[in-house]
């Protein structure tokens, strides 16, 4: 992505010093970025009673799968995974289709409402009705307690719309014109020409939406906190986090009390939190290295305009 420098000059001592320092700095940076994860993985794979003693950093001391077994023992986790996956797939699929369709229309130079519709959508980036009015709207639309409250309110984001519009505007005009001469209508051009040609930007936006959907917890908290069948992984983790932070000082004490019972299979809030953290983030950690170039493309596309 970035041009390689010509190595046409001999490296001076200053260069060597700078490069060494830079490489060391980058190593430290990578450790800072990764350590919290590796630490959570280690804690999640370590015996809960043993973790309370502290001192678990990069590697489990007393290896066990017990924490995972405990987390996956509960039926609720399967429902949470199911809803998380479902909203990610449906949200990305439906959102992508709707965004692409509007983007295609407002990318047409002759469309009479091109400008007004673009402005109507861009304005939504600058303001929103706020929490309470939105909440009451969802109540009036009877969306509270339903799965669709995860999908409908965030159907089209203005940012993604602009990224897609820019891409479609960049497609060679001659394609549209020759298709029109052949008598193809807008829907046919959209489905048969524009969608196949826009795969890179579709991938980018699909990923943006999918990550957004997977990571959402606030709408669950707000609209469906009493609906156990609509819970998500992020929300389950959030509940664990909130419980442990309110008892943070009593955390260790209760854990010690537990371990005093001599129960070898006990779990602690700490080990459950670590395990849930890994479960809730693992899909993204596994997927993103392969897809990151699409993210980067979208980011630069959106910024360069």
């Amino acid at each position: 992505m970035f041009r390689r420098k010509k190595a046409s000059f001999i490296r001076t001592r200053e260069d060597i010093l700078f490069d060494t320092g830079n490489i060391i700095f980058m190593f430290i940076l990578c450790i800072l970025m990764l350590y919290p994860f590796i630490n959570q993985i280690a804690i999640s794979l370590n015996d809960a009673a043993d973790s309370v003693r502290g001192g678990i950093y990069l590697w489990p001391r007393e290896f066990t799968w017990h924490n995972y077994a405990h987390v996956f023992e509960k039926a609720a986790i399967y429902q949470a995974i199911f809803i998380s996956v479902l909203r990610t797939i449906i949200g990305a699929g439906v959102g992508l289709f709707c965004t692409a369709m509007v983007a295609y229309a407002i990318a047409q130079p002759h469309f009479i409402f091109k400008k007004s519709i673009t402005i109507i959508f861009i304005m939504t980036m600058y303001f929103n009705g706020g929490l309470i009015p939105t909440f009451l709207l969802m109540r009036d639309l009877q969306l509270i307690g339903s799965f669709w409250v995860y999908i409908l309110p965030t159907l089209i984001s203005a940012f993604n719309l602009i990224i897609m519009r820019s891409f479609i505007e960049g497609l060679p005009n001659s394609i549209f014109e020759s298709a029109k001469i052949d008598g193809a209508g807008d829907f046919r051009i959209f489905f048969q020409i524009v969608l196949p040609l826009s795969l890179p930007v579709l991938a980018t936006v699909a990923l943006f939406v999918a990550v957004f959907q997977w990571n959402q917890w606030f709408d669950v908290f707000l609209y469906n906190s009493s609906q156990e069948h609509l819970t998500t992984l992020q929300y389950e983790l959030m509940k664990i986090l909130q419980n442990s932070s309110t008892t943070s000082s009593g955390d260790m004490a209760s854990a010690f009390a537990n371990s005093a019972d001599g129960n070898a299979n006990m779990v602690t809030p700490k080990s459950i939190q670590a395990t849930m953290t890994i479960v809730a983030s693992l899909p993204i950690i596994m997927v993103y290295p392969f897809l990151q170039r699409y993210f980067v493309k979208g980011m630069t596309l959106g910024a360069v305009k």
Binding site: P36, Q234, T277, S281
Partner: peptide, 18 residues
């Protein structure tokens, strides 16, 4: 790419007593 819930869990763990 991580949610703030995950990030908050990591932060609170790094900053915890132990």
């Amino acid at each position: 790419f991580l949610s703030w819930v995950v990030a908050a869990a990591l932060v609170s763990s790094v900053l915890s007593i132990d």
